[in-house]
Computed example of a mutant assay.
Amino acid sequence: MKFSVFTASTPEWSPEQAATILAAQGWDGIEWRITDQDAADVPGFWAGNRASWPLTGLEDQLARISDITAAAGLEFSGIGGYARCDNHADVERMLAATATLGARQVRVTMPPLGGADYRELFTSARADLEWVAERAAAHGVRALIELHHRTITSSASAAIRLIDRLDPSAVGVIHDLGNLIIEGHEDFTAAFQMLGPYLAHVHVKNVRWVAAGAGAAAAGAAAEAEAEGTVRWHEEWAPLPTGQGDVEAYFEALSRHGYDDWVTVEDFSTELPLEQRTAQNLSYLKAIEARTAVTHAA
């Protein structure tokens, strides 16, 4: 396997810092976040992220993105795009940019739940993806659908229904351990088997469930829950080793399935400083990979 970092999770670093530090730590690649974002006084994962590239004017930045990546000796594990499948103009731009960079694959986001009837969202997204598949094939790249909570594709079952019979060389799926803890979890092996040739990429992060009143939840919520006799839970991002996702079992299932491609880490926990966090994540995953390899060799 090859390991990379999605730069949504490195908000404090400039692109040059992200590439240089990750390369020095031993990462194989980088997955650049590309989106227009809100400004922020303090860099954050979703606003003011210094390691993100704006979609506005992207074409003028492609040479710089390529140069920074190559100078660090990193590969592209893919592009972390945010263009939604029904925004054909931006999807076309992202596909073209991915081809120019030689990055092979780019995420195309799915409609969130809410508003329209799920069946209508699904039918519309299928029509959009038929167009996306044609355009991805024309550019010689692959459009990726992420299994993501609170979207129409929160599970492998939903994703395979959506993309079944589309060309798997043009459309694939990102399986995401952390997202599936929040919504959509299915047995790892069954999910990989369901996806078959559409299993294109893997994202790893971790999550824990926290009772109302614990962690970041407000004390008022705890009082309300106690009065009603109901405990309410919410998710929080957790370090890879301590969340509720079993990372080692995940890698064992990937290995049994024969997956030997990119694993991209997007750790949104904040217990450790960023540079320590990325270094420890790589050591942790490589140790798990080594144990998994020994187990299967035996």
Rank of each mutant, 00 (worst) to 15 (best):
M1G: 08
K2N: 10
S4Y: 02
V5Q: 10
F6H: 15
A8S: 12
S9V: 04
T10Y: 04
E16Y: 00
E16N: 01
E16D: 09
A18N: 00
A19C: 08
G26Y: 02
W27H: 10
G29Q: 01
I30W: 05
E31P: 02
D38R: 14
G44E: 05
F45T: 03
G48Y: 05
L55Q: 08
L55T: 11
L58R: 03
Q61D: 06
L62I: 08
R64C: 06
R64E: 14
T69Y: 01
A71K: 11
E75C: 10
G78K: 00
G81N: 03
Y82M: 10
A83W: 03
A83S: 09
R84T: 13
C85A: 15
H88T: 09
H88Q: 10
D90E: 15
L95I: 07
A96L: 07
A97N: 00
A99G: 12
T100G: 05
T100N: 10
G102R: 04
G102E: 07
R107N: 09
M110F: 08
P111S: 11
P111E: 13
P111G: 12
D117C: 06
R119A: 15
E120A: 14
L121Q: 13
L121W: 00
A125I: 09
R126G: 04
D128V: 08
W131G: 08
V132I: 09
V132M: 03
A136Y: 09
A138Q: 15
R142M: 13
R150M: 13
R150V: 09
T153C: 15
T153Q: 09
S154D: 14
A156V: 04
A158L: 09
A158C: 10
I160D: 03
R161P: 04
A170M: 02
A170N: 02
A170I: 04
V171Q: 04
I174W: 05
D176V: 05
G178P: 02
L180I: 12
E186P: 01
T189Y: 12
T189F: 12
T189H: 13
G196W: 06
P197V: 07
P197M: 10
Y198G: 05
L199Q: 04
V202W: 07
H203T: 02
H203C: 04
V204Q: 02
K205F: 11
R208L: 09
W209P: 00
V210I: 15
A212C: 07
A214K: 14
A214G: 09
A214N: 14
G215H: 02
A216T: 14
A218P: 07
A221C: 11
A223R: 15
E224W: 01
A225Y: 00
E226A: 13
A227K: 10
E228G: 01
E228D: 12
G229F: 05
V231N: 03
R232P: 02
W233P: 00
H234I: 02
H234W: 09
E236W: 13
E236I: 10
A238W: 11
A238Q: 14
P241Q: 03
P241E: 05
T242G: 11
G243Y: 09
Q244R: 15
Q244N: 14
Q244P: 07
V247L: 03
E248R: 15
A249L: 10
E252S: 14
H257Q: 08
Y259T: 01
D260M: 07
D261V: 01
T264L: 06
E271M: 10
L274P: 01
Q280D: 14
L282T: 03
L285F: 05
A287M: 07
A287S: 13
A290V: 01
R291E: 03
A293T: 10
A293V: 05
V294K: 13
H296S: 14
A297G: 10
